[in-house]
Design a protein around this nucleic acid. Structure first.
Length: 745
DNA sequence: ATGATATAAAATCCTTTGAAGCGC
DNA sequence: TGCGCTTCTTTGGATTTTATATCA
């Protein structure tokens, strides 16, 4: 933004006057700074000082002024030019004189595009705030998950569920080997006896609302998920409550889209709020309470939920949805239509079309989806794809947490595995569909957490097929691991208890101890077997794969192979082949030195930094500097442990500056020690002991690097002097220095 | 709709060892 | 005269990251 100064008579607002004052301040400051030898100089400087306060007062309301970064404003925005009239105007009537001026802020500077776009870039502060919100939200959702998990363990609820369960379904608790096939009838029973109602009950605690849901046979998706978990646990199946933690974005600005979506949702609150994830059952249940899930497929097309958070709109919505099923979009009078309604209707129509097409191709698709042997085992009539697609009808962002159960089926695979059991959507062992279901709810699968025994475990890997797309949207793994560490222990311990009464309890202690580890391996394996991305940019920060195109300047492929595949003509290498090169000096800080006869792998031209006043006289010096200032980069494998000269006869080996660079303890010459006492220089000198100042780094002050010294390096007490240890002298030295410091703080 | 590319802004990295004046 | 202390100085360019626009 470049201010234009015009001597035009006009009315000035307080803000623009303040701006003018600032400008004049600046101009005058610069005029004085330039050192013009006019006799006014000193006077104007004085006046400047006085005026400054006036200006600052005027500027108190900074938000009105465009120069709020004035002090840091880059001088390069200004051209040096003599402004005699302004210089003369610097006197006591200064403020009045500014009336002669007007500041016109250029509306359309050269980069008009960006101005028009009104783009906003997040600052570091925004990012920090977003990260904090993200973390806090994560913690809250973790706590929520633990509450739900705890309620699932409630003996009363479990007992009630068992009492409702037909006796032929209870035999699963006596099975030695539990398989997916054994779980399916239970799931059918839950779906046949409980309906989704998305109005949260007015109960305060989750446990009481869960009991209420059990009593009324209707509950929110979360409650139904929890009831399913409670039932499975009551049947002594090792069961976790699993939930997608749909946290606020880690990145600032990402809320922009979400919030716009939310705003949209708000504008048509009465519409969207009436849909839910679950294919509704309550009408069918009321008429066919024991309807088998095989009918679900037939019904899924036209079934929608009639939940409503706002009382009174449920009936309206039911009518609307039902008619929508028949006639697609227009069911509402145009007079009452809002933009959001139209959007919704379009979306609904699209979803219906998609659902219909899916249903047409259903049989073929389902067979295609049977990739895993586990899927083929599913013979219970529960379908996956139609259910998942049907969620698109009610796609909405808010208040529809995806949650399900994970049951440990020891009859699956060789030693058992965790099986996805979604009572709300009526799917079982369909973990590969979670991502699509979440996408239908405009939800990203960033965190999937399994809760048990008051603990929690991150099982995102099981449900996320493209880790690289979400890894940057997750909080730093160190923080997340730290948070989860204690919860993981609880979760692992909890997985043991429910099966302790099972027939295989004899081997329980060992197998349960292994279970968590086996799952870890399973999840890690998934992490390592992610398919190659198809677009180049995905390789930019991919954890597993890399292409040479996206390597940094200081990176290299070593070894250059194996080639795992190709993407748009680029060879894909394992990320483990990417090595970061560093300069000799940089390696030195890690206590490594270059092996003999190693040549630099890369030579980067470093910008020849010309220091003011140093190189002006000699043009050649610049070019010489430029050529000599190259960064020679080496790989880790070209390095060996640092081998410094040993301290001999009490003499500390020093560098050419007579000091020791102590980047880390590894950089200390053997036989020396780093003493960090203050003022130890003079003490050592007084004792006549050989030492070297220890430089621990650089400090950047006034654009110059100045070495930072901290204490000294001197020989260790065990350093040999002519074959004799010098313990006595050293210890006495340390003692005396300590007492010296004590007496002279 | 998707991906490649260009562009721009903000953040981050890299830099890596005074000089002059004054008093004692 | 030499030493020790204080004061003054107050970068900046390259690269990376990230978001957005545009085009194919």
């Amino acid at each position: 933004m470049k201010p234009l100064i015009k001597s035009k008579d006009s009315k000035l607002s307080a803000a623009s006057r303040a701006a003018v004052n600032k400008v004049l301040d600046r101009i005058n400051a610069r005029g004085n700074k330039k050192g013009d030898a006019t006799p006014q100089n000193s006077d104007s400087a004085k006046l400047d000082k006085g005026k400054k306060t006036v200006t600052d007062n005027v500027l108190e309301d900074r938000e009105c002024v465009q120069f709020d970064d004035d002090d840091e404003m880059n001088d390069s925005d200004w051209e040096d030019c003599p402004i005699p009239t302004l210089a003369k105007s610097v006197d006591d009537t200064y403020v009045d004189d500014t009336r002669e001026l007007t500041i016109e802020l250029d509306d359309l500077p050269p980069d008009t595009k960006r101005q028009k776009k009104n783009t906003y870039r997040a600052t570091a502060q925004d990012k920090e705030r977003a990260e904090l919100v993200h973390k806090v939200h994560l913690l809250c959702l973790l706590a929520r998950g633990r509450i739900v998990d705890n309620a699932c363990n409630d003996p009363l609820i479990q007992a009630s569920l068992l009492s409702l369960l037909p006796s032929y379904l209870t035999k699963v608790s006596n099975l030695e080997k539990v398989t997916v096939r054994d779980i399916a009838p239970l799931l059918r029973w839950v779906r046949g006896n409980f309906a989704v109602r998305c109005t949260p009950s007015s109960e305060k605690s989750f446990r009481t609302s869960l009991a209420f849901a059990l009593e009324s046979r209707r509950g929110t998706p979360e409650e139904l998920g929890a009831l399913a978990v409670a039932l499975l646990r009551a049947l002594k199946l090792t069961t976790r409550f699993v939930s997608i933690l749909d946290v606020a974005s880690l990145k600032p600005g990402a809320e922009k889209d979400e919030s716009s979506g939310q705003n949209r949702a708000k504008t048509k609150r009465g519409v969207f709020r009436n849909f839910t994830l679950m294919v509704p059952k309550h009408q069918a249940i009321s008429s066919h309470p024991n309807k088998s899930s095989s009918h679900v497929e037939d019904k899924s097309l036209c079934e929608t939920s009639s939940e409503s958070q706002q009382e009174g709109s449920a009936q309206l919505q039911d009518n609307k949805v039902n008619s929508s099923c028949e006639a697609g979009t227009s069911s509402k009078s145009d007079g009452a239509r809002r933009k959001g309604d139209v959007e919704f209707e379009m979306q609904l129509a699209m979803a219906m079309a998609a659902t219909a097409s899916v249903n047409n191709q259903q049989s073929s698709k389902v067979t295609e989806k049977k990739k895993s042997p586990q899927t083929t085992r599913r013979s219970d009539g529960l379908s996956v794809s139609d259910q998942v697609m049907s969620t698109a009808i009610g796609s909405k962002k808010a208040d529809s947490p995806l949650c399900w159960a994970e049951v440990y089926c020891n009859g699956e695979n060789m030693d058992g595995r965790w099986v996805h059991v979604d009572a709300v959507n009526g799917t079982i062992d369909a973990e590969q569909n979670v991502e699509a279901a979440a996408a239908a709810c405009r939800m990203l699968v960033r965190y999937v957490v399994a809760f048990a025994g008051g603990g929690a475990k991150d099982v995102t890997r099981r449900y996320c097929t493209k880790w690289h797309t979400i890894s940057s949207k997750r909080v730093s793994s160190s923080w997340w691991d730290m948070v989860l560490a204690p919860l993981r222990e609880l979760e692992a311990a909890a997985s043991v208890i429910p099966l302790a009464n099972n027939a295989c309890s004899s081997s329980s202690s060992s197998s349960f101890g292994m279970r968590s580890a086996v799952e870890d391996i399973e999840l890690a394996t998934r992490a390592l077997t992610e398919p190659l991305p198809t677009n180049q940019q995905a390789y930019k920060g991919h954890e597993l794969y890399a292409i040479e195109k996206w390597l940094h300047k200081n990176q290299i492929l070593h070894p250059k192979g194996p080639v795992l595949g190709f993407c748009a003509g680029h060879s894909v290498y394992p990320r483990t082949c990417v090595q970061t090169l560093r300069t000799k000096e940089s390696w030195l800080r890690d206590g490594l030195q270059l092996k003999a006869s190693e040549v630099p792998l890369k030579i980067l031209k470093r910008n020849a930094k010309i220091r003011k006043g140093k190189d002006f006289g000699d043009g050649n010096k610049d070019s010489e500097d430029g050529s000599s200032r190259c960064m020679e980069l080496y790989g880790r494998w070209q390095m060996e442990p640092l081998c410094l000269p040993h301290a001999v006869n009490g003499i500390v080996p020093k560098n050419e500056r007579g000091q020791v660079d102590v980047w880390s303890e590894k950089c200390l010459p053997p036989g020396t020690v780093h003493l960090r006492f203050p003022r130890i220089f003079s003490i050592a000198k007084r004792f006549g002991i050989d030492y070297a100042p220890a430089m621990v780094g650089f400090e950047y002050k006034s654009g110059r690097a100045t070495p930072v010294f901290e204490g000294i390096c001197r020989r260790t007490r065990n350093e040999r002097r002519g074959g004799e240890k010098t313990k006595r002298s050293t210890s006495s030295f340390e003692m005396v220095s300590a007492s010296f410091l004590y007496l002279n703080p």
